[in-house]
Every structure is written in structure tokens, then in C-alpha cells.
Simulated assay, not measured.
Amino acid sequence: MSTQTPLSMALSQRQADERATPLTAFRMARRWWLEGRRLNLSQLAEELGIGRATLMRWVGNKDLLMGEILWSLYKGIYDQVIEKAKADHPERGIEFLGQIYDEVNLQLINAKPMHDFLASEPQWGLQLLTSNVSGLQKRLIDEWEALFQEEISAGRINPEMDANSLAYYIIRIGEGAVYCDLICGRTPEPERAGQAFRLLVNGHSR
């Protein structure tokens, strides 16, 4: 009499609905990163049960895959902070935007996975975060440009530069505040970044 059960059979072979997909590859890579593991595409492909060529076709390259992982962290923080700012400042305007900027920068400084990643791979990490090799920079600019454009169109802010340029410069300032310990050995100063943000966006600091 067979001792196999539906569970033992399911565990002994990969089921059709458990086959690796681009999304499962991303989820596994993201889990590794959150656990502090280095991202190795050959090991990832092996664990997924696929060829490295297949994985590369799915993710593009290591920079782009890491960009998706970093974006998932940023977007989670960003969306949560925006919802809180909407509740705190229903009138929107400069204080609404400033709260988002301050809180996002603060959470990034305190994000342990980000801190561990930059400590273990500072050169690669900074390249991913401060250039557009991973696509992250463009996504950040697009998000902030949309926010600024909405506030400008509603007449709630009146900056001296267009929304796209404004988004680019406030992101660069934020990078200097969040990653300055790695860039130039200075202690992160999110408060100073917040002051610069308000000067650029509305012509005065709080």
C-alpha cells in the first residue's frame, strides 16, 4: 500500500503553478536582499531551477534587478508617507510636500536593509542610487514631478523652476543628505535638506 499523500507528492515535485516566473525571481531576490544576502544571479537562477540565460532575459541585468528591489522599498515608504501627509495637511501646499520630503529622507536613513547594503557594497550601491543605471533615478524624478505639477497647477506653490527641474534638484539634495556619510564622510543632515527643499519649492525655509 502506498504511503504517499497528496502533500508528499506535491512536495516531491514542482507543480505547474509553482514554476518560476519573472515575478517569483523578483520576490526571491528581494527576500535575499532584505535578509542581507548578496545578489548573485547564478545562485538565484539555480535556486529557481532555471538557466542563467533565462533569468537574464527576465530581469535584464543585475543593476536593473537591484533597481526594481530598491524601487519597491522606496515606493512602499513613499506611498505610506503620502497618505499620512494627506491626512495631516488636507489643504496641501508647501507643508504637505515638505512633510513628505522630510519623512521619506528620514525613513531612508533609518532603513536597515539600505544601511546594510551600502555598508557591504558602497560603490555599487551609490552608483545604483545616484545614477540612472538601474532606472531608479528616473522613477523618483517622475514621482516628484507629478506631485509638484499638481501643486503648481492648483496654485498652491509657485516655484521659480519647472516641475521636472525642481524634482531633479530636490532628489540630488536628498541624496546628499541621506548618503553623505558614504559620499564625503559627513553625518546625514535631513533637517538641512528640508530647509533647502523649502527654499527651492516656495522661496523660504520654515
Results as ranks from 00 to 15, higher is better:
Ala196Val: 12
Ala154Val: 07
Gln13Phe: 02
Glu91Gln: 12
Ile157Asp: 03
Asn132Gly: 02
Glu151Tyr: 00
Leu11Ile: 10
Met28Arg: 13
Met161Trp: 11
Glu150Trp: 02
Glu18Gly: 06
Gly155Asn: 00
Pro6His: 06
Leu73Trp: 10
Leu166Cys: 10
Gly155Tyr: 05
Leu73Phe: 04
Leu166Phe: 03
Trp124Val: 06
Trp71His: 13
Leu11Arg: 05
Asp88Gln: 13
Ser72Cys: 09
Ala146Ile: 07
Arg92Trp: 08
Tyr74Phe: 15
Leu64Tyr: 10
Phe26Ser: 05
Met66Glu: 15
Arg57Val: 13
Leu65Thr: 04
Lys86Trp: 04
Ser12Glu: 06
Thr5Asn: 07
Arg57Ser: 12
Leu118Ser: 00
Met66Asn: 09
Leu128Ile: 07
Ser8Met: 05
Glu150Ser: 15
Leu106Ala: 14
Glu68Met: 12
Ile170Lys: 10
Asn110Thr: 08
Leu65Pro: 00
Leu48Met: 14
Glu121Ala: 09
Met28Gly: 04
Glu145Gln: 14
Thr54Pro: 12
Gln4Tyr: 02
Ile170Ala: 00
Gly185Pro: 02
Leu166Ile: 05
Ala111Tyr: 15
Arg172Ala: 10
Tyr101Asn: 04
Thr21Trp: 00
Met1Phe: 06
Leu108Ile: 10
Ile109Ser: 00
Trp58Ile: 08
Gln99Ala: 08
Glu68Gly: 02
Leu23Gln: 12
Asp79Val: 12
Arg192Glu: 08
Asn132Tyr: 01
Thr3Asn: 08
Arg19Asn: 07
Ile173Val: 12
Pro188Arg: 06
Ser42Trp: 09
Trp32Ala: 15
Ala154Gln: 09
Ala10Gly: 02
Arg206Pro: 14
Val59Asn: 13
Leu147His: 13
Ile173Glu: 03
Pro90Thr: 01
Leu199Gly: 11
Glu103Arg: 02
Asp162Cys: 06
Phe148Asp: 02
Met161Glu: 09
Asp17Ala: 04
Met1Gly: 13
Val133Thr: 09
Ala85Val: 05
Cys180Thr: 09
Tyr179Trp: 08
Leu182Met: 08
Phe117Arg: 13
Thr21Cys: 00
Met1Gln: 09
Ala29Gln: 05
Glu83Asn: 12
Glu145Val: 10
Gly203Asp: 03
Glu191Trp: 03
His89Lys: 01
Leu126Glu: 04
Ser42Arg: 13
Gln195Phe: 01
Pro190Trp: 02
Ser120Glu: 13
Glu35Met: 14
Arg206Phe: 14
Pro159Leu: 08
Glu175Leu: 07
Asp102Arg: 14
Phe26Arg: 06
Glu143Ile: 06
Arg192Asn: 10
Pro22Asp: 01
Cys184Glu: 13
Leu128Lys: 07
Ala16Ser: 08
Arg139Lys: 15
Glu68Ile: 05
Pro190Tyr: 01
Tyr179Leu: 02
Val81Ala: 04
Leu199Ser: 04
Tyr179Asn: 03
Glu18Thr: 10
Pro113Gln: 10
Leu199Val: 14
Tyr179Gly: 01
Ser8Cys: 05
Gln43Thr: 10
Arg31Leu: 11
Ser42Gln: 14
Tyr78His: 09
Ala163His: 09
Met66Gly: 04
His89Met: 00
Ile100Gly: 01
Ile109Pro: 00
Ser120Thr: 11
Val104Met: 01
Asn132Met: 03
Glu47Lys: 15
Gly49His: 11
Leu48Gly: 05
Gln127Asn: 12
Ser165Trp: 09
Glu46His: 15
Ile82Arg: 07
Val59Gly: 08
Leu7Cys: 05
Ile157Met: 00
Gly93Cys: 00
